[in-house]
Design a protein around this nucleic acid. Structure first.
Length: 447
DNA sequence: AACGTTAGCAACCGCCTGGCG
DNA sequence: GCGCCAGGCGGTTGCTAACGT
């Protein structure tokens, strides 16, 4: 990679500096935005002398300097929201972040990737059962609203198919022999198979039209064995599946993150809108974190290592984020205390690093290779909860401890938010599954 | 204390899209 | 229609702190 370390001064193009930002650079950028607002990032260099490219300025502003950013560990509800959204739309970090006030796409992406590695290493599915259930039901319930704006009925999207996701299965395509299934499909992602069948059935019963074979994407099952090399865009080049539940097709409204408002916390409307693939029609609340900054709220920052604020006041925004209730220069979120500084963010965290999982699992492909698996050196309550969740928890039991327990803020996650009972869900699943070519054993999610 | 390992994060890169002339 | 430019997105990489041995 082009980065040459923390001490680097100049990059290769035009003498532009790369690497970590200094406090002085941050101040220049903040002052510029204060005067001119966001946008026109390339002008920053001209007008401030800041030796950074426009893209770098934009990134620095968006991820670290803009007001009302929310730092610190994700709350359990935020984690659930991320899981839900990711299950529905995949690696659309900007879109996901648009529904999490104060969170950046980069932050969410990092969170997800870390979590993904962690769970892959542990051989665990990515989504808690209740989340998977929510996603499955929401998709099933919204299986037929894919009507074109002009009234024409569009073909049902391959809800659980994504070319970039080797775990996704296309509708109405006979599954490969079980022997060729990825172990993760059969064991760690059994619900995918179930849901796939369920959605097909729901759509069929709703009078929908199946895609013709020509219209269906070909399921390249062998991708699972390519070590991730064949992953498509959504899967990224990281060499492993990005999502157990592939993104829904959308109408390709790739809106920049800053153009999003934050939807209401009511997941129903949000999810419905996401299912419809039309973010423009989402009912939204005003999101103070996404405003176009014309007059810059006072920022709070302090010298790294200093307890004294250097400038301005904190939480200038009027939103209800926790940050706005914190003392200047100090933001406490869910047990972690953060000092917002210019330069690298200094954090004093009470959230111990709770996982010791090797990165090379990522390179090894999309499943946990036995020789790669090393038990975590330390086992925190949250990790124990994750492991226990899939080792013997009955389907439908509340997945307490699923979400990270950083900072002791983890109230146990609430039970499945789906309205149906576990028994109802299981019954529905059995009914749907009976129509699928998979054996009942292959559908079992209690592995 | 030194070293190795790992997670988390910041920042970079390439690619894509939309606006504009 | 085409090219240029700015902005945005997703993926990747390197650094650093924390922790174990």
């Amino acid at each position: 990679m082009a980065r040459s370390g923390a001490g680097l001064v100049e990059g290769g193009s035009g003498g532009l500096k790369k690497g970590p930002w200094t406090q002085a650079e941050d101040k220049l950028l903040v002052d510029h935005v204060r005067r001119h607002g966001e946008g026109n990032w390339n002008a920053v260099r001209r007008e401030t002398g800041l030796q950074r490219c426009g893209k770098s300025c934009r990134l620095r502003w968006a991820n670290h300097l803009r007001p009302n950013l929310r730092k610190g560990p994700f709350s359990p509800e935020e984690e659930r929201q991320i899981l839900r959204l990711h299950g529905l739309i995949g690696n659309k970090w900007a879109r996901i972040s648009s529904h999490l006030p104060g969170r950046t796409d980069n932050e969410i992406k990092n969170y997800w990737n870390t979590r993904l590695k962690r769970r892959q290493r542990a051989g665990l599915p990515l989504y808690p059962p209740d989340i998977e259930r929510e996603i499955a039901l929401l998709r099933a319930q919204n299986i037929n609203p894919f009507a074109d704006a002009d009234g024409g009925v569009s073909l049902p999207p391959p809800l659980l198919y994504d070319a970039g996701n080797p775990f996704a299965l296309p509708p109405a395509v006979p599954l490969p022999p079980s022997g060729s299934h990825s172990p993760l499909i059969n064991q760690s992602y059994p619900l995918l198979n179930q849901m796939q069948g369920m959605q097909q059935q729901v759509f069929h019963l709703a009078g929908g039209h199946h895609q013709s074979p020509q219209q269906q994407p070909v399921f390249h099952h062998h991708q699972q064995h390519d070590g991730g090399a064949a992953l498509g865009h959504g899967g990224g080049g990281g060499g492993f599946v990005s999502s157990g539940l592939p993104p829904l097709p959308t109408r390709a409204h790739e809106l920049p993150s800053n153009q999003f408002d934050t939807s209401s916390s009511g997941s129903g409307g949000l999810l419905e809108s996401l299912l419809l693939g039309d973010d423009h029609h989402l009912p939204r609340q005003h999101n103070p974190t996404m405003v176009k900054v014309n007059s810059m709220p006072a920022l709070t920052y302090r010298d790294a290592g200093s307890r004294q604020p250097v400038h301005g006041g904190a939480g200038a925004g009027s939103d209800s984020d926790e940050a706005s209730h914190c003392q200047p220069g100090e933001d406490i979120h869910h047990g972690a205390k953060w000092n917002f500084t210019f330069g690298r963010t200094q954090k004093t965290t009470r959230c111990k690093r709770d996982h010791r999982l090797t990165k090379h699992v990522v390179a090894s492909g999309n499943r946990c290779v036995s020789e790669d698996f090393k038990p975590a050196k330390r086992r925190t309550p949250s990790e124990a909860g994750i492991s226990d969740l899939f080792s013997g928890v009955a389907p439908g039991s509340t997945p307490g401890g699923w979400f990270s327990a950083c900072g002791g803020s983890t109230a146990p996650s609430p039970g499945p938010s789906s309205a149906i009972t576990d028994e109802e869900f299981n019954l529905e699943m059995q009914q749907f599954m009976s129509l699928l070519p998979l054996s009942i054993d292959e559908h079992s999610w209690n592995t």
